[in-house]
Nucleic acid binder design. Sequence first.
DNA 1: TAAGGCCTGCTC
DNA 2: GAGCAGGCCTTA
Length: 277
Amino acid sequence: MPELPEVEVIRLHLQRLLKGKRIGGVKVFFPGSVAYPDIESFSAAIKGKIIESIGRRGKFLLFYLSGALRLVIHLRMTGSIIYRTDTKDEYYEKHCRLIILLDDGGGALYYSDIRKFGRLWLLEEQDDSIAGLQKLGPDWWTEANLKIFRSRLAKYEKSPLKRVLLEQGFIAGLGNIYVDESLFRSGIHPARQVASLSGAEQETLYEAIKEVLKDGIENGGTTIRDYRNAGGAPGGYQERIQVYGRKGASCFKCGNSIEKIVFCGRGTYFCACCQKI
DNA sequence: TAAGGCCTGCTC
DNA sequence: GAGCAGGCCTTA
């Protein structure tokens, strides 16, 4: 499931490949993937636009287009965007929901999404309201710092850490995998109340999150099942995962077995020995 | 605040 | 063949 590191890896890749390319048109196979505007307007408006740059906020991918437009994509659980230099029929696969064709032999972007949770919006560049971007907190990778982290934590004192870290309005970008990994790395239990953290623990947690995200990006993201980068290849961070998905396996730090519980409605992996409540 | 809905494929 | 996986929005 694409979280901040996966989306950032895709962004870096696409930024290199697509900058300056012109969109020739779109083929839509599953209209439900386009959240705004209607398919006809979407198709007509995107045609002929130049891709000027590609940004990211939290888990949202942002294609800045000529004409002061912005294509916003959220991959949710199983979305992927793969760039191919040509458009052979053999590249069409079962879960392909949309193809963005690029002019002048520039290839195409294949948007696939097994579970159809992902969404695309074509918006005016400044419009943050429709896709929900205005509800995002600062981005974990590009905007957050220790001071911001501390001050925003103060607003969530009575909540358990796991819930706060998953909340995109707190600081944006973390999902279930990287939250569990960050909490393990910092030695803090997912159910700990925010108010119970000492100043030193806040700093430890902040540093752990930054390190986990850095590791995730540098290793190409995490492929548990479906994630693929913009070249269609899996990531490598799953080899470095400490707790997520390791129920019953030995903790790499202490040797006790990793536990799995459902907490805040999410599968939650932790080491009861290393992570104190 | 919690539960339901969106979805498909894989696991038990 | 039921249940689970979970990001995020909507509804109760």
